[in-house]
Design a protein around this nucleic acid. Structure first.
Lengths: 233, 233
DNA sequence: TCATTGATTTATGCATTCAAAATGGTATGG
DNA sequence: CCATACCATTTTGAATGCATAAATCAATGA
């Protein structure tokens, strides 16, 4: 949860700079784009130069990211990027399942028609990228769809909890590529998700989200094993 | 999540000082004991003196606590203690319900007999404090029981997520006192919880935990309204 | 050749410092 | 009397400085 009160009117053009959040976003980005790799130490000096900041606000951000599980703090040895393990995925799966199940039910009740249309638009964009084998673009839209479903619940607490788990799962993304068959399957699952949402069928949405999550977690675990096999030959 | 790798052997007697965590714990304590009151600004200087630290590590802790929702960051105005609102409780209720439901099922499957005995011991201690109307002691044991159930799942991710929500709920504790009748009811619910756990009846445990949570949330909301009525007469 | 020791360098953790913003209080004018 | 403007004080946010722990690397000896 980023608990920062936005300023009263956020001065029209003089952008209100929540510098602290910028840094958080920057480091997160580095982690998700693979600029910072799991298991590696976080080079404070280098990142300070890259973001043109001093170590003080950087280190504040590192503590926050550690509390989210993206980094680990090593006493007197700074921070290192967490490496998602299969065991952690197994732990996260039921928790994410419970949250998504809840979200599926609530979203079907509360989402507006416009909200569904928006997700549909994202879905077809994503399908197009899938067809063109543009993985990064696909991936971004996939994330947006799941975020939109969470947002549609109108429950910020739920959305934030889920996001924090999803972020940790996402860390495995750059360790290896998904198989084509899994990618096709995921796309088919998303067809079902859109369908259930369109029909506002809460129980069905919950079911298909759960199946999708299960497959995603299985895939992530494979990715983890493959990456480990590659690294330690 | 406190993501700190404990040192290899934590030097036998020369206590390994995770100073950062000490500060976190200290401020959390101030919040839960009412030394820091919801809505109030957090006086950095005072807390630094109290904990004999400088502002640098303190401010690191403040950012973490804000990310957990216990504090809010006001741009250029520091941090203030969050004030739990009824709307937030309404958001948190289904999420905590989903997590507790999951935990109930898993705990019944995985908890050891010793684990049940331990909870039973806590339960009877708690009952004794209830009989003696010792609210603080009751409250602490109540928290321990819920924590033990979560720990019994063996799922750290689940336990941490739940703990972070429970902590926010706990913030309302010092705003007003629970009614005697509600307290008696809660104790009766805990009898049911212990019973379901003893029988390892997962579905039943999930049901009674959910009912208990519902009542707890209702009570917290009442406490919030009462406190608000008192404050703005 | 390899492991071990010790000196050197680097990085970390925290305190301190400094500029800018917010707060408080007084004076001024309506 | 109240509202506003102005200045002094305090507080915040971030940079810098410093003591200590860790990492690096060269030298030594087996």
């Amino acid at each position: 949860m980023t608990n920062e009160i936005s300023m009263t009117q956020a001065a029209e053009n003089s952008i209100a700079p929540p510098l602290h959040d910028e840094i958080l976003a920057g480091i997160r980005e580095m982690i998700f784009t693979g600029a910072l790799i799991g298991g590696q130490r976080v080079p404070e000096k280098m990142i300070c130069e890259q973001l043109s900041i001093s170590r003080t606000p950087l280190r504040e951000a590192l503590k926050v990211l550690a509390s989210e599980g993206l980094l680990e703090l090593l006493p007197n040895r700074g921070a290192r990027v967490s490496r998602l393990t299969a065991a952690e995925v197994d732990e996260m799966f039921p928790v994410m399942g419970a949250l998504e199940g809840l979200a599926g039910e609530i979203a079907c009740q509360r989402i507006s028609d416009d909200g569904i249309d928006e997700i549909r638009a994202l879905h077809y964009q994503m399908a197009a990228h899938h067809k063109r084998r543009e993985f990064s673009e696909y991936f971004g839209l996939n994330q947006q769809i799941h975020e939109n479903i969470m947002a549609a619940t109108g429950n910020a607490t739920l959305a934030i909890m889920y996001a924090s788990l999803a972020a940790r799962i996402r860390m495995a993304r750059y360790r290896a590529n998904f198989s084509q068959s899994r990618w096709d399957q995921a796309m088919a699952e998303h067809d079902e998700i859109l369908s259930a949402l369109t029909e506002r069928d809460g129980p069905r949405l919950t079911r298909v989200l759960s199946a999708h999550l299960k497959n995603t977690c299985e895939t992530v675990k494979k990715v983890i094993f493959n990456a480990e096999a590659e690294e330690a030959p």
